Amino acid sequence: MPMHTSQRARADRGRGAGLGLALVSAVAFGGSGVAAKPLIEAGLDPLHVVWLRVVGAALVALPLAVRHRALLRERPALLVGFGLLAVAGVQACYFAALSRIPVGVALLIEYLAPALVLGWVRLVQRRPVTRAAAIGVVLAVGGLACVVQAWSGLRFDPVGVLLALGAACCQVGYFVLADQGGTAGREAPDPLGVIAHGLLVGAVVLTAVARPWTLDWSVLAADADLDGTPVPAALLLAWIVLIATVLAYVTGVRSVRRLSPQVAGVVACLEAIVATVLAWVLLGEHLSAPQLAGGAVVLVGAFIAQSSAPAEGRAEPVASGGAERELSARGTAA
């Protein structure tokens, strides 16, 4: 009995640490928009901001890529998939969708990813999911609709909707690929190595898409306007690269290892709340009552989903995060 209690306490600590990492990741990702918007308003193309973000992060992570160069031989498909989907795909599809449909609608469609993860687990992997996890996803998506006010300015553009769905599918790839490491008979790859190589792959792909040779570099040498306050554009870019990308991806991947893809996906919906609150505080974009109510619903949904995991050692659906807690207990989540 004492051993069982100790194992359960260790599992609870691992889940708590995973939730904390997921929250840090959501906050870091959520801060990217507030820093990127002044750069875009200063004259940078959105795709150029994405390219600078990914290339800068790839350069920061280059020593890690060299250190984990064995992954190129051991897990090439994982690295290419992570770079194409989790790095380049999400960014490119989302920014392309913004040119055709409202920002709120695009963001809502992208954050259907947690529901799509459940669909992947249930229909493709043919594994059961907990009712609480499903309820948490429904609440989070419904609350997110209020946060982004999806009903404002809705225009039906089939291409734009498909692009936003593409971003959602790529985000599913992020959560599923970030969970790789629980495959039977194979040691989990170091998440830092996967992120480093994924950023390099994403940088190569985005270079072809964004055409950085047309970038106006003079914008980065000047100040950008942050709600009336001049801020060095280079400082905003540094925030996007170091915090909103490097820190966000590292904590996000580690959180998936400690939770489960679908639970981490629901918690990631908090990114929309963080982005909205930061825009309120730093950019003067005020929140409405429905947005505040929606934020509370997202928090409730995230809590229900992350607290749905039964005790370790029981037969449990994949949505409850059992396999990921076992990985964490073995120390595979670096």
Rank of each mutant, 00 (worst) to 15 (best):
S308F: 05
V274P: 01
S255P: 04
T245H: 12
S288Q: 11
A268P: 01
P290N: 13
A279Y: 06
I243V: 15
V298A: 07
V263N: 08
S308M: 04
C269R: 01
V300C: 13
A268G: 02
R257A: 12
T251C: 14
L283H: 05
V256N: 00
L278Q: 10
P310H: 12
L283V: 07
P310M: 04
H286K: 11
L278A: 15
V263I: 15
V253Q: 08
L287G: 05
A289M: 14
L283D: 05
S308Q: 05
S255H: 04
L292H: 02
P261I: 06
S288G: 15
F303Y: 09
V274D: 09
I273P: 00
G284T: 08
V297K: 08
L282P: 02
L247H: 01
E312D: 15
T245N: 10
E285R: 15
P290I: 10
L259I: 02
V277T: 10
L292W: 13
E271G: 06
V246L: 09
H286P: 13
V298L: 08
A248G: 03
E312Y: 00
G301H: 09
G252L: 10
V277Y: 10
V277S: 07
V253R: 00
V298C: 04
F303C: 09
R258E: 01
G295N: 07
V246G: 07
P310L: 14
Q306S: 15
H286E: 14
A244F: 01
L247F: 01
A311K: 02
A289Y: 04
G265T: 06
L282Q: 06
G284P: 06
V266C: 06
P310G: 14
L283C: 06
A305G: 10
R258P: 00
V246I: 10
A264N: 04
L299M: 15
T251M: 02
P310F: 03
V300Q: 03
L282V: 13
Q291T: 07
E285V: 14
L299S: 03
A305K: 05
G294P: 10
V263L: 12
A296D: 03
S260C: 05
